[in-house]
Design a protein around this nucleic acid. Structure first.
Lengths: 228, 228
DNA sequence: CGCGGTTTTGAAGCAGTTCAAGTAGCGTGG
DNA sequence: CCACGCTACTTGAACTGCTTCAAAACCGCG
C-alpha cells in the first residue's frame, strides 16, 4: 500500500541553479544507462523540500522515504522506495517533498534534463520513468483511500501486504523503517502502530521478529480480509 | 486542496472491447480539438470502477467526482473536477476509480488512443494531458498530507481555499457537491463537516448561504493560518 | 554493565464518530 | 398557493478508536 514518487514530471529541464545538495563526490558512470551512482547513509538527507530539482533517482539498494511537512512538524510520508523504484521526478523545478534514506542506500541518479532526450527514442529508461509516474499515481489513490477511510488495523494490514508484494520473497517482510516512519506513512502515531502490531501478533495473524524489524505473515488470508 | 485525476496514463490504446457505458447518443465534433461532447445529468454515472477505459474527459461545465470504494461501501473521493479539468486518464485499460456527475455537466470526451497520436506533434491537448497528469500527482500529495495529518477544521479550511483558488471568482465559493461528497473527500463524516462549517461560521471565518451550497470567505487569513 | 535510543505497554483524554432527532429547503400535487 | 413529503443539512448526546502523556522493557553498543 505504498505511494510511490514524490512527484513525477515532464517539465522542461532547468540545468541552471545550484543542486539540491552539494552532489557527493561518489559518482561514477553506470552500465544501467546514463545514471551516476550515489551512496547515502541511513537517515541522511537526499534532498529537501524547496530544493531545486536537478536529478531523479532509481533505488539500487536500501530504502528511501519521501515526505511532506506541515509548519508545526507534522509529517506525512507519501511513500517508501525500495530497490528498483524510481523517485524524485518533479512537475516543476522545485522539490515539493523531501527525501531521505531510511537505511544505507545506493542510488542511480539521472538529470531531469536527460529525460526529454531519452523520451525521444524508445529507451528502456524512458518507459521506466513513465511507468514509475503512473504507478505513483495509482499508489497515491490507494493511499488516499487508506488514509481517508481505513481503520488502524486495516492500514497496517494494507501496509504489510504492500511491502510483501514488493519486497516480499517468502512470507517474511523486512521493515527497514522505524515505527515513526510507519506511523507517518499510515497517518497514525507510533503507539498505535505498535499496539496494532501487537494485536495482530496476539491474534496469530503475524509474528514479529525479536528485533521488531521483520514480520512473518502467518495468516495472509486474514490480512487480505482486513485489506477490505 | 483537491486531488485531480482518477489516474493518468500513457498505456497503449485498447480500442477493442465494450465501452464503459453505452456511449450516449449526444455526441458532436467540437472545435476545441478532437473531442466529442457528452452531457451528463446530476448524480449520473460517467463510468464505474472496473469498466474498460476508452475515453478521458475535459470538464466544460458542471462538476465531477472520481472515487474509490471499499467492499463495505466506504468511499473516498479523490477529487472533484471543475470546468477546465481533465480526468479519466488511466494507466491500464481498466478503470481504477469510478466517476459521476455532481451536477448537470458537459464533458468533452477523447479516446485514449488519440493521446498517443496527439503526443507526437506539439498539440495543445497533448501538453494539457501531461500537465493534468502532473497536477493530479501534486494534488494527490497535498491530499495525502491532509488526510494523514490534518484536523477536521484544517481539512475544511484547505478544501475551501482549494476550491476558491480554482473556481473562486470573488470571496464566494460555490459548493456544487453535497455534504456527503465533501465528507468522503476529506475523510470525515457528514456530521463533522456540518459541525465544522457551523463552527467556522460562528467564529466569523466564513458565512454560509441560506441554501447552504455557497460559502463566503470572511477571513481568508484565518483560513490560511489553519491551512498550516 | 551501563547508556541512549527505540519499541512496547498502561492509563487517561479527546476529536471525531455514531446514533438519534430536529429543522429547513424544495418539488409535487391538491 | 399552500400542505405534504422527501431529502439534505444541522444539532444533540453518548460513545469509541486513536491520541496523548507517562513509564517500563528491550536492544544495540561502547
Amino acid at each position: 500500500m505504498q505511494v510511490a514518487l514524490a512527484t513525477a514530471g515532464l517539465a522542461p529541464a532547468h540545468d541552471a541553479g545550484r543542486d539540491e545538495r552539494a552532489p557527493p563526490s561518489l559518482w561514477a558512470r553506470d552500465a544501467a544507462g546514463a545514471g551516476s551512482r550515489r551512496r547515502v547513509a541511513a537517515e541522511e538527507e537526499i534532498y529537501a523540500e524547496g530544493d531545486r530539482a536537478v536529478h531523479f533517482y532509481k533505488v539500487m539498494s536500501g530504502a528511501v522515504r519521501t515526505y511532506r511537512l506541515l509548519s508545526d512538524g507534522r509529517r506525512q510520508i507519501d511513500g517508501f522506495h525500495l530497490p528498483g523504484d524510481i523517485f524524485g521526478l518533479e512537475a516543476g523545478d522545485e522539490r515539493r517533498a523531501g527525501a531521505d534514506a531510511v537505511a544505507d542506500t545506493t542510488l542511480l541518479a539521472f538529470r531531469h534534463g536527460d529525460r526529454d532526450a531519452l523520451a525521444g527514442e524508445a529507451g528502456a529508461l524512458a518507459r521506466e520513468v513513465v511507468a514509475a509516474m503512473l504507478r505513483a499515481l495509482e499508489r497515491a489513490q490507494d493511499h488516499m483511500l487508506l488514509l481517508g477511510r481505513k481503520s488502524a488495523r486495516e492500514r497496517v494490514a494494507s501496509f504489510l501486504l504492500g511491502l510483501a508484494g514488493r519486497a516480499g520473497s517468502d512470507g517474511t517482510v523486512a521493515l527497514p523503517m522505524s515505527r515513526a516512519d510507519i506511523a507517518d506513512h499510515l497517518g497514525l502515531t507510533i503507539e498505535s502502530v505498535s499496539r496494532t502490531f501487537t494485536g495482530l501478533e496476539r491474534d496469530g495473524v503475524i509474528a514479529l521478529s525479536a528485533q521488531r524489524r521483520a514480520v512473518v505473515l502467518r495468516d495472509e488470508a486474514a490480512l487480505r480480509r482486513l485489506d477490505a
